[in-house]
């Protein structure tokens, strides 16, 4: 989202209250959505629930192409379309709903840094496992990603996506990593999150913030998604405070939805 449109949107957004028919778009849940997209979508849903804003989840096969930035998820509120958690947080802030208003400067700096930690290490690791690990890519990612399309388009799109993700991994230096190394990096990330959480209810005292939503989205999805290799889920299970954190948020905000 550019600055100019951001400023303009803030002005418009502030004028209108949150409508009842706000919708969140993501790929098809049963057949198509992948781990990384599901985690991002769940993070946004958790954030909106924490803010007390109602949103309907709609699944579309072409959600990724509908999104203005090409990333999942995106929300359609009024006549505005906003994608990804960062801009959505800004957008809701312009409407007067914010979870991190009570933090001081140092805490806000830490919150933003930890959110980037999740994006930089955890999300990248999820993408790596999905697309750069041949077993997972062949058995799970490619079939799921290409399920709405017919032959030969499904193969073309799946390979195109895999190739693009591999190029990104090479560009940021993850191309040469082995799967073991990636799991180790992820463990480090979990350890850092576990350290920061400690014995608190949420990352910053008693109130949840967008960081809690983001961490919940990723951890919960990893725990409940079956991959060819459940190494990632096992690594989380060694940090009990993260497990109880997930359960707590699920019970508080998603009661009755997941069992």
């Amino acid at each position: 989202m550019s600055l100019a449109t951001e400023a303009f949107m803030s002005q418009i957004a502030a004028a209108e209250p949150w409508p009842e028919n706000a919708t969140l778009y993501q790929p098809l849940r049963e057949d198509q959505i992948l781990l990384s997209d599901c985690a991002s979508s769940l993070a946004v849903q958790a954030f909106l629930r924490m803010c007390g804003l109602p949103v309907q989840v709609v699944c579309r096969a072409n959600a990724e192409y509908m999104s203005p930035s090409g990333k999942i998820p995106f929300i359609h509120v009024g006549n505005q379309v906003v994608s990804e958690l960062g801009p959505i947080v800004q957008f809701t802030k312009a409407k007067g709903h914010s979870l991190s208003a009570g933090l001081d400067d140092v805490q806000r700096a830490e919150m933003k840094a930890y959110m980037e930690l999740v994006n930089n290490m955890l999300l990248t690791a999820e993408l790596y496992v999905q697309w750069c690990d041949d077993a997972t890519a062949t058995e799970i990612s490619r079939p799921r990603y290409s399920s709405p399309y017919s032959w030969p388009l499904n193969n073309i799109l799946a390979f195109q996506k895999q190739w693009e993700v591999r190029r990104k991994m090479n560009a940021i230096g993850w191309g040469g990593k082995t799967l073991e190394k990636v799991y180790e990096d992820v463990s480090q990330c979990f350890q850092a999150l576990s350290q920061r959480l400690g014995t608190q209810t949420y990352f910053f005292a008693k109130q949840p913030t967008e960081l809690d939503a983001l961490v919940f989205g990723h951890l919960f999805t990893i725990l409940t998604t079956r991959l060819t290799n459940n190494e990632l889920a096992e690594r989380i299970k060694s940090y009990s405070n993260l497990l109880s954190f997930c359960r707590r948020i699920e019970q508080t905000y998603f009661e009755g939805k997941h069992s």
Partner: peptide
């Protein structure tokens, strides 16, 4: 353009 209507946005994507 970013200002395309939502109906057009819903048509985006690939098809054969």
């Amino acid at each position: 353009a970013r200002t395309a209507s939502f109906a057009i946005r819903e048509e985006s994507g690939h098809s054969l």
